[in-house]
Simulated assay, not measured.
Amino acid sequence: MSIPSLRYVFLGLSITSSWGTGHATTYRALLRALHARGHSLLFLERDLPSHERHRDLPRPPYAEVALYKSTEELRDRFVGAIKEADLVVIGSSMADGADIGSWVLDEARGKVAFYDLDTPVTLRKLALGDHRYLTPRLINRYALYLSFTGGPTLSLLERKYGAPRARPLYCSVDPEVYHPEPSDSRWDLGYLGTYVDDRQPVLDRLLLESARRFRRGRFAVAGTQYPPTIAWPENVHRIEHLPPPEHRSFYNAQRFTLNVTRCDMVETGWSPSVRLFEAAACGTPILTDPWPGLESFFQPGREILLVRSTDDVVRRLRETFDSERLALAQRARQRVFAEHTSAHRAEALERYTLEVLDESSRARMKLGASAPQTVCSEP
């Protein structure tokens, strides 16, 4: 069956800058895949000073991108695009996201979705009464709640918050960007991620303490916003910022890569990091802290290895044979290509969009059929 070309408008934290946020990587992969499927794409982004200084993709070739300085400018310049879109997607973590969402819902003629790339954090904020980028009332108005988190959270969003349709839209990987390449193993274990308070104790235990214990090992940590007070072991190489075009070479230079999950994501579960899919696509074996729902994405012991302590990490680094390590990585890579590429996510979003548009069409037809008919009698 031929799929119609759809008009999408995204309003998100950023697609032009990956500085201090993983949202850009997710949006880039998704929009590139949507473009490949023939859809029309506009991404609207707030022109923030932090992004202006670190724009590593100012003009994506697969989507139109427009910047705006204020909510007022957004309303003045882009109301036409909002009205004409088949689906407008409002992303999470925008400081003025609640105001923007309310305005879009009032103006859109098509459907409006909320894309939550921070679902566990969002739910915590809602519980605390922090409604800057999402309010309980808006959840009920969005035709789609697209969630970075799956599992029981989807039912919670519908049952407790009244989301008409909560659907998973996990992060993904673009296999044209992330793939194996010949490289010497510069590091025994590497980690890629922005500094976060609640993640740092786990990183300390699994990587920094492992580096102190395994002095002959070579380690690397890439990411922004780490405080100057951290005492990095001498055998840990620090990379302040690693733009997405350099991610592939970073993964390919590691014997193992480490995934560390934020506390909210561990508590909620079913919240895979994009780093898992990127590393697996590059054929890099993964060590990860455990969290509920992980087995829905990778099979522990066969496609990914669980580590809970410094001893676990050091033992894996010292005792894993190369043949075992490479076989593990190959199985994870096959899993990602079968289920977790950006093409899979674009197809899912396309399917969700057609569902809500078709439902709306059926509702209008039903309403028209049940409307009272006016009978004109001849004089």
Rank of each mutant, 00 (worst) to 15 (best):
P4I: 08
L6M: 10
L11Y: 07
L13E: 12
L13R: 11
S14T: 12
G22S: 14
T26H: 02
Y27T: 11
A29Q: 04
L30G: 07
L31I: 04
R37K: 04
H39K: 05
L41Q: 06
F43K: 07
R46F: 05
L48V: 00
P49Q: 10
S50I: 14
H51C: 06
R53E: 14
H54R: 11
R55N: 02
A63M: 13
A63W: 01
V65W: 00
V65K: 05
V65A: 10
L67D: 02
T71Q: 07
L74V: 05
R75Y: 03
R77S: 13
A81Q: 15
V89Q: 07
S92M: 07
S92Y: 05
S93P: 01
S102T: 15
V104T: 09
V104R: 10
F114W: 14
Y115F: 14
L117Q: 01
R124C: 13
L126R: 02
L128K: 15
G129Q: 05
Y133N: 14
R137N: 08
R137V: 11
I139Q: 11
I139Y: 03
Y142P: 06
L146V: 10
L146K: 06
S147E: 06
T149H: 00
S155W: 08
P168D: 01
S172A: 15
V177P: 00
P180K: 11
S183I: 00
S185N: 14
L189G: 05
L189F: 03
L192W: 02
V196A: 10
P201Y: 00
R205K: 14
L207H: 08
L208I: 00
R213V: 03
R213A: 15
R218P: 01
F219W: 00
T224G: 06
Q225F: 09
Q225G: 02
P227M: 03
I230K: 05
I230Q: 12
P233H: 04
N235G: 08
I239Q: 10
I239P: 10
E240D: 14
H247F: 15
Q254P: 08
R255I: 09
L258K: 10
T261L: 07
T261F: 00
R262T: 09
V266H: 00
E267F: 06
T268M: 13
T268Y: 13
W270R: 03
F277Y: 14
A279Y: 12
C282E: 03
C282W: 07
T284P: 04
P292N: 08
G293A: 00
L294C: 02
E295L: 03
F298G: 07
Q299A: 12
E303T: 08
I304T: 01
V307A: 11
R308V: 01
D311Q: 13
V314P: 13
V314L: 04
V314T: 03
R315D: 06
R316V: 13
E319D: 15
F321W: 02
S323F: 11
S323P: 03
L326Y: 06
L328V: 07
A329G: 14
Q330L: 13
Q330C: 06
A332F: 04
Q334N: 06
V336E: 09
S342Q: 00
S342C: 10
A348R: 13
A348V: 03
L349I: 05
L349T: 03
L349M: 12
R351C: 04
Y352I: 09
E355I: 02
E355M: 08
V356C: 05
L357N: 05
E359I: 02
S361I: 01
R362H: 11
R364P: 00
L367N: 08
L367D: 07
A371Q: 09
P372L: 12
Q373L: 14
C376A: 12
C376H: 09
P379L: 15
